[in-house]
Amino acid sequence: MELFAVPDLPEIRAGHDIAALVRERVDLRSDDVVCVASTVVSKAEGRCVDLEDFPPGPRAREVAGALADHTDGETDPRFVQAVLEESVEVLMEAPFLLTETRFGHITVNAGVDRSNVRDGDVLLLPKRPSESAARIRSALPADRVVVTDTSGRPFRHGQRGVAIGWAGLSPGRDWRGEPDRDGRELTVTVENVADELAAAANLVAGEGDAGTPVVVARDFEWGAHGESDAHFRDVESDFVRQAIREWSPDW
């Protein structure tokens, strides 16, 4: 598999047609996977906002106060209000906000970001990333699109690319029922290909001021495996989330 960044993309702003910008710069093939950073998807969809649009309510002020007690500086309650409005559940309030977004992604601050934002105070994640991926895909020769984000992972330092939306592929490659090298049948292995493609793309796209938010994965082969549509765990099978719900920190 080969990965390369789409070169010379302009600063993306509200109303930009990401698919058209990519088509102008790369001769895509039908089996390519186009990985697009959520930041530019959000910018094109007008998700740069001012914190003045989020007057804080009592809950936001309470959470901001709790965060301030466990950090070195004050937390803007307007920022907390934005996070709350982008979330369906708050799993942790301190020492950081861990929430579930409206499309099922669990991440810090509901993905509300302050970096690389020129047209507002903060950038919100796309409202429905898989629908965004489908719109981009419909205007490209490539059959598969993944919307990526950078996210931390429990039990690990640092961040890596993850998939928050996809179109034209199933997120999981299902190995269950296939034999291992010793002939034993695999019973639980479902490979999260969408996340692996997002992580690979992130290595090429870079972080900070790299300015290469779209990466093409070429010659990726699915192989003779089944598919799985599972990506975000539901509450019933997410034992970590259940444990966090029951956890009461003793500060």
Results as ranks from 00 to 15, higher is better:
G177K: 01
A200I: 08
A14S: 14
D250P: 00
F232P: 00
E191L: 14
I244F: 06
T150S: 14
E93G: 03
V80D: 01
T189K: 05
D27T: 11
H70V: 11
A110K: 11
R160D: 15
R241E: 07
R78Y: 02
W166F: 06
V162R: 02
V235Y: 09
W166P: 01
R184F: 09
G183L: 02
V117T: 10
A167Y: 06
D72T: 08
A64Y: 06
P77F: 11
A110P: 00
R78E: 04
R184E: 12
D219H: 12
R23E: 12
F54H: 07
E196H: 13
E196N: 11
V80Y: 00
A230D: 00
W166Y: 07
R61W: 07
V83E: 04
R13E: 14
A198D: 06
S30Q: 15
G15N: 15
D50P: 02
W222F: 01
F96P: 00
N116R: 10
E196P: 00
H225K: 10
L84C: 09
D53A: 15
R176Y: 13
L91N: 00
V190S: 00
N192D: 07
V145K: 02
T150R: 12
A14E: 15
E86M: 13
I164Q: 05
A134H: 05
V108G: 12
H157R: 13
E236V: 04
V80G: 01
G15Q: 14
P95C: 10
N116C: 03
T150V: 15
E52N: 11
V41I: 12
P171G: 14
E86G: 10
A194W: 03
A163T: 02
V49W: 10
L9E: 04
R47Y: 04
V40Y: 09
E185N: 07
D27L: 12
D195M: 01
V88Q: 13
V188Y: 10
R78F: 05
S248L: 05
P154H: 14
D113P: 03
F239R: 12
E227F: 06
A230F: 03
H105I: 04
Q242F: 03
G120Y: 07
G208M: 07
S87E: 06
A201I: 02
T107L: 15
V214P: 00
D27P: 05
R128W: 08
Q159M: 13
A201E: 03
D143I: 05
V33W: 03
A243D: 05
A82R: 04
I106R: 01
P10E: 15
T212G: 04
E196C: 03
A201W: 01
F54P: 02
E246R: 07
G65N: 13
V204R: 10
L98I: 06
D143F: 01
N109C: 14
R47Q: 05
A82P: 00
V36N: 11
G211D: 11
E178V: 03
L124W: 03
H16A: 15
M1H: 12
M92Y: 06
L28A: 01
F96V: 06
S87K: 06
